[in-house]
Design a protein around this nucleic acid. Structure first.
Lengths: 250, 250
DNA sequence: GAAAGTTGAATCGTATCCAATTTGGAGCCG
DNA sequence: CGGCTCCAAATTGGATACGATTCAACTTTC
């Protein structure tokens, strides 16, 4: 019995040492990463059974992960039709950017005046990582570093609730970029981040808000949100022109 | 075959008329309503088995509902210890109110200039319902009507993403009120809503934003967010005074 | 030859079952 | 008599099994 206890303790230690991570969290993170790194394009089917056997786990836990991802709007679960990587519409994309503008600009009002030199350094480090990623020509790194800058800036506001919202929005933005990106220019140019941090260090709230607003607008404008519709948009247009195709999610 | 088609149509009509609602949605809504109406105080245990037999359904679907509620931050699922109605901390409460101030004020900037007379009427109707609820002395109706006003105002911005965020925040606010309300004054006074709509109809964006900011501040100030700590706050304070108690969720 | 109906495979949703963890209390020892 | 250990009941977490729904290909008929 004491043996059993010690074994239990050892097992617990081992489990704690590596991850507090349950399996479903691993799956969730893996899929999210794959989406962010654009290895899983929007629309890819996510079969519960397939994922289950990939991770050698039951469908129950897979479904848990998919549910969580659905609440983060990264995957879309259609009743009786399975889960796919979300295909955000143009309107949704515009709304996400608008929401980001509102939230990120508003957060600056509180965070900019309260920043310490240490905070400024943290931001500069994040921009440096952004630049490095940009130089590496690695799109994954670029997107990730850009997101990390925005996340880090938001974290300085000290409001975890808003950070949670923004976190979701950044994830959705990545998906939107994957879907509507035009030529090579993938993420936000890091120059904008450089400019932004400069204004922030000067403590000029209004200018910082303007810069953030402009920056996000530029990101949105780099996408093809009007012409050259992607597949699902095409389907929508065709549907409106008489090819009555039953839409399941009205 | 035509018979079958007509039957299907009839069934669909019936289903749509009442619920497109699957059982788990019903459970989810019922619990949420119970929380909002303060019939379920924060901390109430939500046993899966009990709920399952109440709705004559398996635990699987109950867990689905609980999971969804957890992602809305209305219930708290502790590993191996079951689900309880969330007990928001004081910091969480402050953050929720701050988030609401930011979001709701920022939304006005877009919605106020774009409102039509019809929109104004809609808002007036909502305020009227609010007043009626207030006169009825029915706390449930008061809270609900107040929330509906904020929801309706947000809907006029046309941004469903932000509306979703605000919807979650309003739900959490209700929970916060249930936990930290002082004497009788439960929800926001409807006078504030009256004032607010007046400024909105004048089209004065800045004034409307100020009014919204002030209104939410007043709501927050009506709560006891400093003295008379509730249980979980007490536990935290004791923990800080040397009683090293291992926290499971760091 | 094309359109409608039918059949079949695959996948999802729910129920039931078994293992793991927590909790409360009984028993034992100091 | 108080505190600790250990065990049993209850509850949650995960796995498997079965029924329902959907999509696609095939057959049949006009």
């Amino acid at each position: 019995m004491r043996d059993q206890a010690s074994i239990d303790i050892a097992a617990a230690m081992a489990a704690d040492g590596g991850p507090n991570t349950t399996v479903d969290q691993t799956i969730r993170r893996d899929i999210a990463d794959a989406i962010f790194d654009q290895r899983m394009p929007p629309g890819t089917k996510l079969s519960e059974a397939r994922l289950g056997e990939l991770y050698d786990v039951s469908r129950t836990v897979v479904r848990k992960a998919l549910f969580r991802l659905a609440s983060d709007k990264l995957v879309d679960i259609r009743p009786n039709r399975g889960a796919i990587v979300s295909q955000p519409t143009v309107e949704e994309a515009r709304e996400v950017f608008e929401a980001r503008r509102l939230i990120e600009a508003a957060m600056l009002e509180h965070s900019v005046p309260a920043m310490t030199p240490a905070d400024h350094k943290r931001l500069r480090d994040l921009v440096a990582a952004d630049v490095a990623a940009h130089d590496s020509r690695d799109r994954q790194r670029m997107i990730r570093a850009s997101g990390d800058f925005h996340r880090g800036l938001a974290a300085l506001s000290g409001n975890t609730v808003l950070c949670g919202f923004l976190d979701q929005l950044i994830g959705r933005t990545t998906l939107i970029i994957a879907m509507y990106q035009t030529h090579a220019s993938a993420a936000c140019s890091h120059h904008a981040h450089d400019e932004l941090i400069e204004v922030i260090e000067r403590g000029d709230v209004a200018a910082a808000q303007r810069a953030m607003h402009q920056h996000l607008h530029d990101c949105e404008d780099q996408l093809e949100l009007a012409d050259s519709p992607t597949e699902n948009e095409l389907a929508k247009m065709l549907g409106a022109r008489g090819h009555r195709k039953p839409i399941d999610t009205p």
